[in-house]
Simulated assay, not measured.
Amino acid sequence: MGMRRVKLNRHPYLKVGLSIVMIGTILLIFGIAQMANGKDEAPGPALLSVDGIPVDQEEFELFLQDEKAATASYFARQHGAEYGGDFWGTAYGDEVPIEVARSNALDKLVRIKAEQQLAAGYLLIKSAEFQDVQQAMRKAEKSIYGAESLSPLQEYMLFHSKLVLEAKNQYKAKLKAVPEEVLLERYEANRQLFQAPDELTAWQVSWTGDNTEEEQSAAYELAEDIQKGISADQLLPKYKRLHSLRIQEKQYGKQEGKDENSSDLGMMLKEQAYQLSPNQTSEVMSYGNQHFVVLCIERSRGEGGTLDEVKLLIEDAVKEERFEQQIDQAVSQAAIVKNEAMWNELQMK
């Protein structure tokens, strides 16, 4: 008599249990593979800590390597040091380049951590630890045009500057209104800062091409004729025909358009005009193959802003000062603990 096969009727809970075990095994294998690739690798020992915030070597290296050029330049100026193979470990007086570079990098990073701590307090980032900063950076990358072309430090600092601005705005928004007596005191002590620019009427005489003595002489003659009150309609036919000179009247001050003189050339001519007194003519200025003589015709003192007009400006400046003071205090009181063995091994690459 043959053996009868009996079909086992597994309990449904057993099937579910086996499925869970299989899924768990797959996830475990996948996790091990990920760790082997270094994608979820836990951070190594901290190089140092700032007020309990661990700073690993990767983050510190961003700032240390950025000190290379500035440190080499400093030692060349101060000690006549030449950059070479043994430069970083050589003592020049009581200073060693690598030690100066480490110290300067640490100073910058301590301030950055103080600012990031404040930002974390406003929930702009999870914490000031590098991993949390990186996570926030990755989210922000999507909204930063050209982020892929930045160096790691440039990307870090671009994100950080925006982070500080957001933290500063939140700080100022939550700060109580600045007392009226403080605003008045600041206003009285800094009245000159709220003085509007002088009102100027100036003429620009210009030509293109060679800057010959003949052209310069003609430009000064034209400026003298303008001083005499001869109208541009009368002057231009003569000077334009003989010397290709052009003239343009400019108003600086309240009558000036917002972006009218925002170019490099416009700013250069404006600055020159403000250096002149009425009926004074400038030296010849060149910008590429363009040449200019500026003549000041009229100048009057700008009006001073009233307290009511500048109150919001003063209040914003006071709040900004208090924000910086809070950061300064955090930096001055920061508790820094170094892993001395790792610290002394740091070198320039």
Rank of each mutant, 00 (worst) to 15 (best):
D86P: 00
R241F: 07
L48D: 00
R77E: 15
E283F: 10
P12D: 04
E215V: 03
Q78C: 03
M35I: 09
Q251K: 13
I336H: 12
K176V: 07
A202E: 01
V100I: 05
Q57K: 15
V205L: 11
D328E: 14
G84A: 12
Q325M: 12
E41Y: 08
Y92E: 03
K311M: 05
E340S: 13
K68Y: 12
T90P: 01
T71H: 13
T281W: 04
L313A: 11
L193E: 12
P97E: 08
A119I: 01
I23A: 14
S277L: 15
A120P: 01
E129G: 00
C296N: 14
S73H: 15
T90Q: 14
L236C: 01
R246W: 08
S151M: 04
P237A: 02
G257E: 06
A36P: 00
A91G: 06
Q216I: 04
V133T: 04
Q290R: 14
G2L: 08
K174W: 10
L193D: 11
A101M: 10
L158H: 10
S286D: 02
V310L: 05
Q34Y: 05
T71L: 03
Q234N: 09
A114R: 05
L313C: 01
K228G: 11
A105N: 03
D233A: 15
D56E: 11
L236D: 04
G305F: 12
K240V: 00
E271C: 06
A334V: 05
P237K: 02
N9I: 05
A219N: 01
Q170F: 11
E340M: 15
K238C: 01
Y220M: 07
Y145Q: 09
T281F: 07
Y287F: 15
S127G: 03
K338N: 08
S127R: 04
M285W: 07
M157H: 04
K174C: 01
E256S: 11
Q325N: 12
E213T: 06
D94V: 12
N190F: 10
K162D: 05
S103T: 08
S217R: 12
F60G: 00
A167R: 06
G93I: 06
I125A: 04
G31M: 10
A202L: 06
L165V: 03
A218D: 00
T71C: 06
E340C: 07
G229W: 09
A173I: 08
A218C: 10
Q272Y: 02
A273M: 09
L47R: 04
Q326L: 15
S300I: 07
E214T: 13
Q57D: 07
L48Q: 03
V110M: 07
N37I: 08
N289S: 11
T25E: 05
D94W: 14
G44E: 13
I327S: 06
K113H: 12
H291Q: 03
A69E: 14
L48R: 05
H243D: 01
D40R: 09
S332I: 04
E315L: 04
A232M: 12
G85Y: 08
Q131A: 13
I125H: 05
D259A: 09
G121K: 09
A232S: 09
Q116A: 05
H243I: 00
E199K: 10
K162V: 00
I29A: 14
I125N: 09
L18Y: 12
Q154V: 01
L28A: 12
D308P: 02
V293I: 14
K162L: 07
K338L: 14
K15A: 08
Q234M: 12
D56K: 11
L269S: 05
G80H: 10
S161Y: 12
